[in-house]
Amino acid sequence: MNRISWLAVPTEDHTHEGVLKLWQKAEANLGFIPNVFRAQALNAEQFLAWWTNFNLLVNREGHLSNAEREMLAVVVSGLNRCVYCAVSHGAALRTCTGDPILADTVAVNWRHARLDPRQAALCAFAEKLTLTPADMTEQDLYPLKQAGLNDHEILEATQVIGMFNMTNRVSSALGFQPNTEYHQQGR
């Protein structure tokens, strides 16, 4: 197995029962265990707390569509140059949209993608919040509202963007490597 983190990665024999259950569920649903699950298992309780929040924001039905949440993940991860998240969520965006060209273009430069006004407003908001969070003002919400987003959707978008900024920093700081399976998904 190739190295997936710059830190130690526990074996199944040395992994928390709750993490093992999550690994089994992921393998059943995806056909593999995401490396981020293996790498973060070193601190099982913190990983499970992160997963609960991440799962709620990204994988459960919410105010934004799955494609919108994955698009935000790809924009944020691309801006942060987080290899793990850009690759894994690029795969998820390809899968949920069925459009590999859109997903690949968003990953490199969302401005070149064929986006509707709502998607473009979300991407612009994600970019500003990621690159210059101290410069945010109430006016930054206006393009989102003009594109038809309501307050629930704006709050969820902000939470998703925040989650990915945090997750990108953990993944990048510790050298998490994406599973090879992600490179083929949705193509």
Rank of each mutant, 00 (worst) to 15 (best):
T180C: 07
N109Y: 13
H112I: 05
G90A: 06
P143G: 04
N165T: 14
D151N: 09
T95W: 08
L115E: 02
E138L: 14
A44G: 06
A113E: 00
I4L: 04
V58M: 08
Q46N: 09
I4Y: 08
D151W: 06
P143V: 05
N59Q: 14
Q46S: 15
E17S: 11
L30P: 10
H112L: 13
Y142Q: 10
Q185K: 08
H63Y: 07
M136E: 04
D135R: 13
L155P: 03
G175S: 10
V36Q: 07
E153I: 06
Y182V: 13
E17I: 13
D13Y: 05
E156Q: 08
Q24C: 09
A91F: 01
R3D: 04
N29Y: 12
P100K: 07
Q46R: 09
V9F: 10
C123Q: 03
F37A: 01
G18H: 11
D140S: 01
I154C: 03
T105E: 00
C85E: 09
Q24Y: 14
A173P: 08
V87R: 02
R60Q: 02
A134T: 10
F54P: 02
G78A: 12
L141M: 15
C123D: 02
W51C: 05
P34R: 05
G62Y: 00
Q177T: 14
A173Q: 11
T15S: 11
M163N: 09
F47I: 10
G162K: 03
I161M: 07
R81S: 15
V83N: 12
T97M: 00
P100F: 01
E68N: 03
E156C: 09
Y84S: 04
I33R: 13
L56Q: 09
C96E: 01
D135G: 15
V75H: 00
A134H: 15
P10F: 12
T105L: 01
A92C: 11
L174Y: 11
S77G: 09
R169Y: 06
L42T: 12
F47L: 10
V75L: 03
D99G: 01
G98Q: 07
G78P: 09
N55M: 11
Q119S: 03
L30K: 13
E153M: 13
L48C: 10
R60F: 04
A49N: 14
C85K: 04
V36F: 08
F37N: 00
E61F: 14
E12C: 08
Q177Y: 11
V58D: 00
M136D: 03
A126D: 14
P100H: 11
E68Y: 01
T97P: 02
L174D: 07
R114I: 14
A28N: 14
Y142C: 05
R111I: 10
